[in-house]
Design a protein around this nucleic acid. Structure first.
Length: 865
RNA sequence: GCGGGCGUGGCGGAAUCGGUAGACGCAGCAGACUUAAAAUCUGUCGACCGCAAGGUCGUGCCGGUUCAAGUCCGGCCGCCCGCACCA
């Protein structure tokens, strides 16, 4: 018995695939009549080396790519590198290597690893975002979108990461900390570039409904992130004409509840509202309040604990529906300057925060919504606001209307008074893309003292990063470069200053999937014809951590580029199908000194885990996602060296559903190794005299027919499982078939033919999962050519139908026995069989049969009492 | 607080439409082969009662619908994820 040796087989088959450009996508051409299929995994950041954790993502995409290829699709399955980013600069600082050299070394190492995994990738389309040939187009896109009015530059309070010395987008601040550094983010005023993603807020929200092959979770998260709420903008006229001259005649607020306007008892402005700032200049108390609020932390905890606080600004406004009704204006710490208009009207009976505030400062609480089944005489608001629907009362012309109708009525009235209108507000902010970093795409503009911001002319692109930079200081090397930032103004020709900020790396990943459709395009970011042919991505695979950031930006970009005329996509949505895969987890280990240890530094065979180098005890910690920082990673090359690429692929798809995490265990890997060998011995157990793997043993009977049935049943189930992204189920089904096949000893030539047919099916359906083993087996079985060129087998549906079925028989819902009946037997026939059964008769002793339920070919239930 | 998800053997999980709960894998146990071990192979493996045949219980908890509930409905409990003073 020969063992299967992946070390020999895997490189052999990888070369065979390369030799025939097997995975090169064809694309739009007159002679190509295959339907297209674009499958993409979120491209990696070249951080160093690939570990088993990363491989799960690529393996899943690869299964889909290989399966679709076998089903006759022209598959586009490309790979590239999200190559700009901070770690390269950190490496430059720590080790004195240039970020570009470090990045390219990593890319080379990781490309080799991915190739050894045997991925069916079209490497001819490989791109790296740090290449000028890529980012020159990004600069062109930037200028194009600027022309379209989708970019603006403004002085804004921004999230500043003091450790990374750069600004962060709102999406990159998690619990008040930088998403990479974990440092507490501080607010700073800076001149920055923003993409006007908010202009697409409605489209991006509405189109979520069409994304029926996206996880609901991700759609919900995006919807919440955009946070569209409909309501009204309401203008409250200032009573003080002096202030009105200074700030405009009214203070405008956004509300979702104009129906509760008659419950208003105050206005509250954000502490950094312009009016508050102006009043603070003359009022020390307001000034103190403002400063205290500015010091307030932004972490979830601090916000949670912060009590409602405010200060009376000493000014008043008129109620829009009654010019004789004056309301006091306060500043309150719970009003956010960044949302709506930075001002609210307080309607304490219908809003918990307003109520808390009103109780604290002794402001009026007037209920205006009567809950269903409550009485106007007895309904009172104590410490809990009523936010639900009901009937409006205490509200003059709105009295008696439902909350829904009153809302419309109030807006109509506001509009006729010229004091408000229906309005929509969003939680989404514009996307801040300026970064004070070297290793990113330079922003292609020049700042001229006379002409202001001037775009770099298209023929001067790309603006290439200078090579000679130093990293001896945490600030931006481009800022400190002696000459690079000097440039002549393209408009007036005078000496001017080049923009030294670079683009957020999320810009790079917002259109790379378009570049993949035609990476050879020189004059445009991509060719419209290719983009229109391949887009949208049919199946996108990546981690849930990108549910908001990357996926939202990419959706915005695709729409913006489509609208800018770079292509003409029907839907504007880049990813028709999205799958968010779970991670590979592993135990964590800490040495006696409290340092993280990698699995190979730990001896687990003893009763108590010890550190191999020192013999000291090791504490075994939580099972967590494989990550370099916790050292709980298993290197891909080491794994492939011992078990082979197919074993990694099979392992990361086994056991756990793809969307859930899978735990890496040595015993699990042993199991995979056993399976690989078992499969190989099953294949090699077929005598040399057997017919080829495309045999159809149509004259098989008895056990040989059972084998055929089993193979076709598995084929059916595995096909279904792949289509439904249930790879763990596919794995289980394959195990099942192998178990049946290895026990089957053919009695004659027909039996051998049946086994050959079954093995032929088996090998083709495992090919997307363990492609090298499949090729080796295909060759051994005498298959022609490569198994990747063999079509996906056709299910013989006749073999799925059994002649007879086993029916469980229940008495009063409890299973008592089972009978074997002919498939499709008539109800009365089955009933007679059941009633004649001895076990059934025993179970029915002393009982009267009231009803017999026969569900054809499924179950029988006798109701008796 | 709001939104979403999950809860099944010792473990990962299966049961896709309301129809035999525990497929498949891991671990365990017993046996075969072996001087021995590893590897491999065979059997067994939810709990309880029973020599067995068989029976009772069993999918987080309580209740409901149904001939029939892991699956549907109502109410709890626990865990995970996202958002969070968003007017």
């Amino acid at each position: 018995m020969t063992r299967y040796n992946p070390r020999e087989a895997e490189p052999k088959w990888q070369s065979a695939w390369d030799a025939c450009d097997a995975f090169k996508a064809i694309g739009p051409s007159a002679s190509n009549d295959k339907p297209k299929y674009y499958v993409l995994e979120m491209f990696p950041y070249p951080s160093g080396r690939i570990h088993v954790g990363h491989s799960r993502n690529y393996t899943m995409g690869d299964v889909v790519a290989r399966y679709k290829r076998a089903r006759g699709f022209d598959v586009l399955h490309p790979m590239g590198w999200d190559a700009f980013g901070l770690p390269a600069e950190n490496a430059a600082r720590d080790r004195g290597v240039h970020p570009g050299a470090w990045t390219h070394d990593n890319i080379d190492a990781m490309r080799g690893q991915l190739q050894r995994l045997g991925l069916a990738l079209d490497w001819s389309r490989e791109i790296a975002t740090c290449d000028p040939s890529y980012y020159r187009h990004q600069q062109a896109i930037f200028l194009k979108l600027m022309e379209r009015g989708l970019l603006h530059r403004k002085t804004a309070k921004v999230n500043w990461d003091p450790v990374d010395q750069t600004v962060l987008a709102n999406e990159q601040v998690i619990d008040g900390r930088g998403w990479r550094s974990g440092a507490l983010v501080v607010q700073r005023e800076l001149d920055q570039w923003f993409f006007k993603i908010t202009e697409y807020a409605d489209e991006l929200t509405d189109a979520l409904d069409e994304l029926d092959r996206w996880p609901d979770k991700v759609r919900t998260m995006q919807s919440n992130w955009i946070g569209r709420s409909r309501g009204a903008e309401v203008s409250f006229p200032l009573t003080d004409t002096g202030l009105a001259d200074q700030f405009g005649a009214t203070i405008d607020v956004f509300t979702t509840r104009p129906d509760t306007l008659f419950g208003a008892s105050f206005l509250a402005l954000a502490p950094d509202h312009p009016i508050v700032k102006a009043l603070a200049a003359d009022d020390p108390e307001i000034d103190r309040f403002m400063r205290e609020c500015a010091r307030m932390g932004t972490t979830a905890e601090e916000i949670e604990k912060a009590p409602k606080r405010g200060v009376d600004l000493g000014i008043t406004v008129r109620h829009p529906f009654d010019k004789n009704w004056e309301l006091p204006v306060w500043s309150a710490n719970f009003v956010l300057s960044g949302y709506g208009t930075g001002a609210i009207f307080g309607s304490p009976a219908g809003d918990q925060r307003d109520l808390d505030f009103a109780r604290k400062y002794d402001l009026a609480v007037q209920p205006v919504v009567l809950p269903p089944e409550a009485s106007a005489d007895t309904h009172v608001i104590e410490d809990e606001a009523y936010t639900g629907p009901g009937t409006i009362y205490n509200s003059r012309f709105l009295d008696g209307l439902s909350t829904v109708d009153a809302l419309e009525r109030a807006i109509t009235e506001l509009e006729s008074l010229g004091l408000g209108k229906g309005a929509t507000s969003y939680r989404l902010r514009d996307w801040l893309v300026s970064r004070q970093r070297y290793w990113g795409c330079p922003i292609p503009v020049i700042h001229c003292a006379d002409c202001g911001v001037v775009p770099v002319p298209e023929d001067q692109l790309p603006v290439v990063l200078p090579e000679d930079v130093t990293f001896d200081h945490p600030s931006n090397p481009l800022e400190r470069h002696p000459t690079w930032k000097n440039a002549d103004c393209p408009s007036c020709g005078k000496a001017a200053r080049r923009e030294t900020d670079t683009l957020d790396t999320f810009v790079c990943s917002s259109w790379y999937f378009l570049r993949f459709t035609s990476p050879w395009a020189e004059d445009t970011p991509f060719l419209a014809s290719d983009a229109e042919h391949w887009m949208p991505v049919d199946q996108y695979v990546g981690g849930i951590e990108h549910a908001i950031l990357h996926l939202l930006y990419a959706r915005f970009f695709t729409r913006a580029l489509n609208d800018a005329g770079l292509m003409n996509m029907k839907s504007g949505e880049p990813f028709a199908g999205l799958f968010t895969q779970g991670m590979v987890t592993h135990e964590t280990y800490k040495s006696a000194e409290g340092k993280w240890l990698s699995p190979e530094e730990v001896d687990l065979r003893k009763e108590r885990a010890v550190e191999l180098a020192t013999g000291k005890p090791v504490s075994v910690g939580a099972i967590e996602k494989m990550s370099k920082s916790k050292k709980n990673v298993v290197d891909l090359d080491a794994f492939i060296e011992s078990y082979g690429a197919d074993a990694v692929r099979w392992f990361v798809l086994s056991d756990s559903p793809p969307e859930r995490d899978v735990e890496y265990t040595d015993s699990g890997v042993e199991g995979v190794w056993r399976f690989v060998q078992r499969l190989w011995t099953t294949v090699t157990s077929l005598p040399d005299t057997a017919p080829g793997p495309l045999t159809v043993a149509s004259d098989a009977t008895g056990p040989a027919l059972d084998i055929r049935r089993a193979a076709h049943k598995t084929l059916h189930a595995v096909t279904d499982a792949i289509e439904g992204f249930r790879f763990n189920s596919a794995v289980a089904q394959v195990h099942d078939l192998v178990n049946v096949l290895r026990k089957f000893e053919p009695a004659d030539q027909t039996g051998i033919a049946a086994k050959a047919e079954a093995l032929g099916i088996l090998v083709r359906i495992i090919a997307p999962f363990v492609p090298h083993l499949a090729e080796e087996s295909w060759e051994r079985l005498g298959g022609e050519g490569l198994v990747i060129d063999a079509a996906w087998p056709e299910v013989d549906t006749g073999l799925l139908v059994e002649d007879s079925v086993t029916l469980p028989v229940q008495v009063n819902g409890k299973r008592r026995t089972e009978i074997t009946a002919p498939k499709g037997a008539a109800q009365d026939v089955v009933q007679d069989m059941v009633m004649a059964d001895q076990t059934v008769q025993r179970a029915l002793e002393g009982l009267t049969v009231r009803k017999v339920i026969v569900v054809p070919d499924r179950i029988v239930n006798i109701v008796a009492g």
